[in-house]
């Protein structure tokens, strides 16, 4: 049986209901909340601040450091052991590389900007939600940035390409599934993250990239509107 109708009744090119907030963590220099369907990500930015140990300092420019953490009971499966594991470290690394092209830390030599991403509830697409939250939190912290980053995960369920794949689709059993998380720099349309889990034909990949760009421009609008809303004058 082919995949003709999505499990949650969405259109094939529709993202999950998305909600965002900026400046929610008081003690952080910048913070954001990003919710995509049932996936929830919080990002907190601290810094620029002095980096220790000192050998990590770079006298030419500041450093960006990301952390990714799924909370113990965040997913539908078993309890996840808290703390960084191999997967979390890799995702933290790709998040960092997805955001790095837009942040400009040349004004802050020898310093570090720390981005902490916490996921209290997950339903696939966590790295994308994390990148979206982190990009908003960095803007909220007043860090110099050339642009903002939005991310979305495109999936192939059986023979259909779907935007913003969720966990029920990821675990589809009547056919093969592929999952392609992508991060897009909004203004230029450059891709700063492209991973693939599963198989995909060349034509499908091309189509997937186009779908991701379209979905990311929607997400970008949500991100920017949310940031502006923080400073809106309340009447």
């Amino acid at each position: 049986m082919a995949y003709t109708k999505r499990n949650d009744g969405r259109k094939f090119d529709e993202i999950r209901p998305t909600e965002a907030k900026a400046g929610i963590i008081k003690r952080a220099d910048g913070s954001a909340y990003f919710k995509m369907g049932k996936t929830v990500a919080y990002a907190a930015v601290y810094g620029p601040r002095e980096i220790h140990p000192k050998f990590l300092q770079n006298p030419k420019e500041g450093k960006l450091r990301c952390y990714y953490n799924m909370m113990p009971f965040s997913s539908v499966g078993d309890r996840v052991r808290p703390g960084a594991n191999r997967r979390a470290k890799e995702i933290a690394m790709v998040t960092e590389k997805a955001i790095l092209p837009v942040v400009d830390l040349t004004e802050f030599p020898n310093s570090v900007v720390d981005v902490f991403i916490e996921l209290p509830q997950t339903d696939a697409g966590t790295r994308c939600a994390g990148i979206c939250a982190a990009s908003m939190a960095l803007a909220d912290a007043g860090i110099p940035m050339k642009d903002m980053v939005a991310a979305v995960s495109i999936g192939r369920v059986d023979d259909k390409l779907v935007v913003d794949i969720d966990y029920s689709e990821e675990s589809y059993e009547d056919g093969t599934v592929a999952d392609i998380p992508m991060a897009v720099i909004s203004r230029t349309g450059e891709i700063s993250l492209l991973q693939m889990d599963g198989n995909l034909s060349r034509d499908d990949l091309k189509k997937a990239i186009e779908m991701a760009k379209k979905a990311c421009s929607e997400i970008d609008k949500i991100q920017r509107d949310t940031l502006k809303k923080k400073y809106e004058v309340k009447k």
């Binding site: 220099d29 620029p48 909220d140 007043g142 860090i143 110099p144 050339k146």
Partner: peptide, 24 residues
């Protein structure tokens, strides 16, 4: 001309400036 940070637009004649709202 593009914004390189979040902030408040301030136009002074021909100059476009962004005043910061957050940050250290």
């Amino acid at each position: 001309i593009l914004a390189s940070r979040m902030g408040l637009i301030h136009i002074e004649g021909r100059l476009i400036k962004i005043l910061r709202l957050s940050g250290r």
